[in-house]
């Protein structure tokens, strides 16, 4: 029963991964974006700052705008290549949604690992004292980021102006998530414990579940022309 739903989802994911590895469009855009934003931050405030609120905020600014540059590709490329129609004929909408969602989750997690590695390498003041809290924050933050970006990307893929619209639509949706993860990143730098942030974890998990449920309900209307 689960296999009949999961197999086509994984097929969509595999198709997206293959075409991504062929063109490397989203990946190179993301990597270049991460490198350029981090270098601007290094030039602007220097690597030595040790203020945890500044460093935590800047890290998520890098992550937010990098994902804005690459995550809309999944749906926009289908429209640009004219393959959206074929996909509509082959599989039900929810399969497309979850396939694309998984692809974006993988992309965001990969991107965030790279961003954090580069960030801690260039910003000497950035030291995480509780790695457990930090990695949980990063994983749940990536999940929420991918979930909201996927449905927003599905919406803007059908609009005329795709590029500048994506961050405009995504920011109000992502703002509560960003506020919480920035707070938790700051806490993990200052040596907070996981048990102190149970409420925040519940918040992030609830956010992800609500966004995915709403996406699943709405995607059918967005996807069908």
């Amino acid at each position: 029963m689960i296999g009949t739903f999961l197999n086509p989802v994984l097929a969509v994911l595999r198709k997206d991964l293959q075409s991504e590895l062929r063109t490397r469009y989203a990946m190179s855009a993301l990597i270049m974006f991460i490198v350029s934003t981090i270098s601007i931050i290094v030039f602007a405030i220097g690597g030595g700052t040790s203020r945890s609120d500044v460093l935590a905020g800047m890290l998520w600014v890098v992550i937010f705008f990098s994902s804005m540059s690459g995550l809309s590709r999944t749906f926009v490329s289908e429209e640009e290549r004219g393959t959206a129609m074929t996909l509509q004929l082959l599989v039900p909408p929810s399969v497309v949604l979850f396939g694309k969602l998984l692809f974006n989750v993988l992309l965001v997690i990969g991107m965030n690992i790279l961003a954090v590695a580069l960030y801690s390498f260039l910003m000497t003041g950035f030291t995480v004292t509780s790695p457990g809290l930090f990695s949980l924050t990063l994983i749940l933050g990536s999940g929420g980021l991918a979930a909201s970006s996927t449905i927003i990307a599905a919406i803007i893929a059908k609009a005329n102006t795709k590029g500048p619209l994506f961050p405009v639509l995504a920011l109000p949706i992502l703002l509560p998530l960003l506020v919480v993860v920035i707070n938790m990143t700051r806490l993990s730098m200052e040596g907070g414990d996981i048990s102190e942030s149970v409420g925040e974890f519940q918040f992030l998990i609830a956010y992800i579940i609500v966004i995915i449920t709403a996406s699943n309900l709405l995607f059918e209307y967005i996807w069908r022309d």
Partner: peptide
């Protein structure tokens, strides 16, 4: 009409989180 309705619904769904946070 379809896309703006979908966006309004998603935004409304997220609003309670904001009230909480």
């Amino acid at each position: 009409a379809t896309l703006s309705a979908a966006y309004a619904i998603i935004a409304a769904v997220v609003m309670p989180f904001f009230m909480f946070v």
